[in-house]
Nucleic acid binder design. Structure first.
Length: 295
DNA sequence: CAATGTGTTGAA
DNA sequence: TCAACACATTGG
């Protein structure tokens, strides 16, 4: 026997050049032809792809996060244990859909968005009136804080693919620290249908304005938003869980003709000042039942 | 064209 | 459920 040559079996330990790909020691991590590593998790008889990564450890970490979100705290993981997670991360994980988490993992933005959410949790706690006021319905676990509303302009729904947030409103409700101002933030807004819109929010120094950019044009398209329509921003705060705060966006058609009339309608809505729970669009019924998730 | 992610299979 | 493997699809 010519076992000496070993021509077709040279893929054992060293050269991973062709046929055989090196296996990973990590669960959910698979080799890619180009030497990188893929992460995947299975659910309901099918694979959910979690993206590709430069090294095994990164892919393994991504799998762990997905496993914790998909299967809970007792999930079998590679490295990360639930003890590693602080409370905020657990909150972050469970307050986002599986699709959202997967999207973050695939885009490598999970860490960034986790940090963002921590900032917002902190901000929400600070801004909340915790003086023991009894005006808020004690039986409601959630309060709705109206932020602001805008009548969208033609340019907001045009080809510029952005919406200007009135400066005063932006600085009041969506304060950006200097670092975030340049890079921008990726904010998650939930609409009345439960669809989450992930919009980039940043400051354009050239025009000295705050804008929603990436993701906005899709929102305009899907909602069939027209100039004169109203877009409302608000925040829900879940009192039960460490002031878990969530951002929301809703829109409603303008009355077609009179720009001024609609502008005046904005003033009728009463912000937080009263301390009461603001009820908005309680019975909004919109068309378009498609699309559960938007990039 | 290179890289990604799916179709598919067989093992556990 | 899982990883291995082949390769169709994607996207710059």
């Amino acid at each position: 026997m010519d076992m000496i040559s070993g021509t077709d079996d040279d893929c054992s330990e060293n050269a991973e050049s062709r046929s055989k790909l090196p296996s990973s020691k990590y669960k959910g991590v698979v080799p890619q032809p180009n030497g990188r590593w893929g992460a995947q998790i299975y659910e309901k008889h099918q694979r959910v792809w979690l993206g590709t990564f430069n090294d095994q450890e990164e892919a393994a970490q991504v799998y762990d996060i997905a496993a914790l979100r998909f299967r809970g705290q007792n999930a079998i993981t590679n490295l990360k244990t639930t003890n590693d997670q602080d409370y905020m991360e657990k909150l972050f994980l469970t307050s986002h859909s599986k699709d959202e988490i997967v999207d973050m993992l695939r885009k490598h933005t999970y860490g960034q968005e986790l940090e963002q959410s921590k900032q917002y949790y902190a901000a929400a706690s600070c801004h909340m009136d915790l003086s023991g006021s009894n005006t808020i319905n004690p039986f409601s676990e959630e309060t709705r804080e109206f932020l602001f509303e805008k009548v969208v302009t033609p340019s907001d729904v045009g080809k510029l693919n952005r919406m200007v947030i009135p400066k005063q409103q932006a600085e009041k409700h969506f304060a950006l620290n200097p670092e975030s101002a340049s890079k921008g933030l990726l904010l998650n807004f939930e609409d009345e249908l439960g669809t989450v819109w992930r919009l980039r929010y940043c400051y354009w120094s050239s025009s000295q304005s705050y804008v929603l950019t990436k993701g906005w044009s899709k929102f305009v398209k899907e909602k069939n938003l027209k100039a004169g329509d109203l877009v409302c921003f608000w925040r829900s705060i879940n009192m039960g869980h460490a002031h878990h705060s969530k951002l929301h966006i809703d829109c409603k058609p303008g009355n077609g003709s009179d720009f001024e009339e609609m502008q005046s309608r904005v003033d009728l809505l009463d912000p937080v000042q009263t301390g009461s729970v603001v009820r908005l669009f309680g019975v909004n019924i919109l068309e378009k039942p498609d699309k559960l998730y938007c990039t």
